[in-house]
Design a protein around this nucleic acid. Structure first.
Lengths: 116, 116
DNA sequence: TCTATATTTCAAGTATTCCAGAACTATCGA
DNA sequence: TCGATAGTTCTGGAATACTTGAAATATAGA
């Protein structure tokens, strides 16, 4: 991932409503979540949410698919993984101590879901 | 790390000049880097850089210390580690596949510096 | 076809960010 | 003390982001 994409992803996530929506989508997993459900869950107005989902989409962090009347959104795992990798490569390059807590967190998360 | 601090850190990094400055500081390690050197290296005007370093500082990502006429800046490893941990915990919670590339990147970085 | 539902797009106003110039502060050395 | 060096703070204007109301689009079902 190049700097430009990383910055787009970082600034997409640097917003309370968008970060919350993205988190919901990550937790929703492969089933995704309809725009309306996200709006209900986060308390955002539908048009505000729509524009924020658009920004997340432009940054490559979410994908979407129409299903009947709803449009279902999904977190783009590959892109989020790439962003994290960018930050780790970039920032851990000289200093393993930055990575350590992150790797531990990843380990804990893996344990929480039983894959460790 | 709570959402508010994470968002401050994310938006501090979501800027080409600031991301570049922060990278320099991470690579500079414990010796840090004087503001003027950062400005020279990145081509930023001193006042612009100063305000950007201020933003990074407010987000907790850099610290500083006067040394003679210079002010030397350091990357705050603990904070960057906490940010990465926040993103990993948050986003890997349901999905190990997001973490995998990041952990690999951490591994590669560790190898690159000979600590693996 | 008509109506209701789900969501997006458009437009406009406010707020915030970003940058560059100018002025200010702190430190060092002569 | 004076001048030079290193950075910061202040200021204003341009650009960008954010939110909301209103209108438009797409789909499903009667």
């Amino acid at each position: 991932m190049e700097q430009t994409s990383a910055i787009a992803a970082l600034s997409a996530l640097a917003h309370p409503g968008r970060l919350e929506a993205f988190r919901l989508l990550v937790r929703a997993g492969a089933e995704g979540m309809a725009a309306g459900d996200i709006a209900r869950e986060t308390g955002a107005l539908p048009n505000t949410l729509s524009s924020n989902l658009n920004i997340l989409g432009a940054a490559g962090l979410v994908k979407s698919e129409r299903r009947g009347r709803s449009i279902v959104y999904f977190a783009a795992y590959d892109r989020m993984g790439a962003l994290l990798a960018f930050l780790m490569e970039d920032c851990c390059a000289g200093n393993a101590e930055i990575c350590a807590p992150a790797v531990e967190a990843a380990g804990r998360a893996a344990c929480a879901q039983g894959t460790c």
